[in-house]
Computed example of a mutant assay.
Amino acid sequence: MTRDADEPATGGGRSGTGSAGEGLTVGRAAALVGVSVRTLHHWDDVGLVRPSGRTFAGYRVYSADDIARIHRVLVYRELGMPLAEIARILDDPAADARAHLRRQRDQLLERIERLERMVTAVDRMLEASRSGMRLTPEEQVAIFGDDWQPAWLEGAEQRWGGNEQWAQYTERAAAMTAEDWRRVTARTEELNADLAEARRAGTAPGSAEANALAERHRALLSTYFDCTHAMHACIGTMFATDPGFAEHYDGVAPGMAAWLRDTIHANAEAHGVDPATATWE
């Protein structure tokens, strides 16, 4: 079949049915509806959308009805319908065009809703890959308490991001649901209460009871990354020397920051780690 490769940019008069300027050539029709000229040629070949006229020079021209048919084809194709099925529906004289359009509209709305949910999910995954948490800021406050500040996650990433343990944290945290976070938060609150009770009772670091609490603490940290005894010793030092952590633990029980450090260090020593020379490994 001869193609209109050198057709003019505007439509000419249509043979037998139109005057000059009536109808769109294949190039202009393709640009208008957002498909390639090759696609319109293929649809012409298979009888899906045939231009209803020609210019006096013999070029194909598409009428307004032809363009409307192309748009209907595009809608059906967007819904994943095969071209042969599209042709059957469009050419069925018994088909209710308005009913088909209503169904198309309903299907498109359903698809838009599904795509919007997918976009939201991707956004959450992108945020999770950065901060390691799929919770919204509102969910974080609801689970972690009114004093929780979502910006702390950014500070943590700036401070520790880039090492293997942070990568473990982001991967594990991204897989945790809101219910998972509630369980971890409950475990944390329970452990803090037991630590505070031990501190107030004068439990000696290095005792069996204190070592058991230290192991519970290390196990809780291992929810997020594989925490060795050497790492735990480094964290214990940070609890007593970092103003933010020290204020937090001393707020749970007076003197608890230093006591927790000593408890963690004593437990690390029991496992062959010298807290004075411990490194992050």
Results as ranks from 00 to 15, higher is better:
246 A>Y: 01
253 A>C: 07
159 R>L: 11
142 A>M: 10
113 E>Q: 03
74 L>I: 06
167 A>C: 11
1 M>Y: 12
21 G>T: 02
40 L>P: 14
228 T>W: 00
58 G>D: 13
227 C>W: 04
37 V>K: 08
1 M>L: 13
272 G>P: 11
12 G>V: 08
215 E>L: 09
222 S>G: 04
107 Q>W: 08
46 V>R: 09
100 H>Q: 14
146 D>A: 15
116 E>C: 04
247 E>S: 10
45 D>F: 10
158 Q>S: 15
120 T>R: 15
162 G>Y: 00
23 G>K: 05
129 S>A: 15
70 I>D: 08
32 L>W: 10
76 Y>S: 09
160 W>L: 15
63 S>P: 01
4 D>T: 06
73 V>D: 09
52 S>G: 04
254 P>V: 07
98 R>A: 14
60 R>V: 10
56 F>D: 14
37 V>R: 14
234 C>Y: 04
199 R>H: 02
248 H>D: 08
204 A>E: 14
180 D>S: 08
6 D>Q: 13
88 R>F: 14
265 H>I: 00
3 R>K: 11
84 A>M: 04
4 D>E: 07
83 L>Q: 03
169 Y>C: 13
35 V>N: 01
116 E>K: 03
129 S>E: 13
52 S>N: 04
238 M>T: 00
180 D>Q: 08
191 L>F: 02
160 W>S: 08
205 P>Q: 09
118 M>K: 11
90 L>F: 00
197 E>A: 15
220 L>G: 11
274 D>E: 03
238 M>A: 07
108 L>S: 07
38 R>I: 05
60 R>C: 01
274 D>S: 09
264 I>G: 06
195 L>T: 02
195 L>H: 04
145 G>Y: 08
278 A>L: 07
148 W>P: 08
66 D>M: 03
57 A>I: 12
121 A>W: 07
280 W>P: 00
38 R>W: 05
210 A>N: 00
38 R>F: 03
213 L>H: 00
107 Q>G: 01
256 M>N: 06
163 N>D: 13
187 R>M: 11
18 G>Q: 01
176 M>P: 02
87 A>E: 13
172 R>P: 12
85 E>I: 10
164 E>C: 12
137 P>Q: 06
92 D>T: 07
162 G>S: 02
176 M>R: 11
149 Q>M: 14
255 G>R: 03
102 R>Q: 08
224 Y>I: 06
59 Y>Q: 03
137 P>A: 00
130 R>S: 09
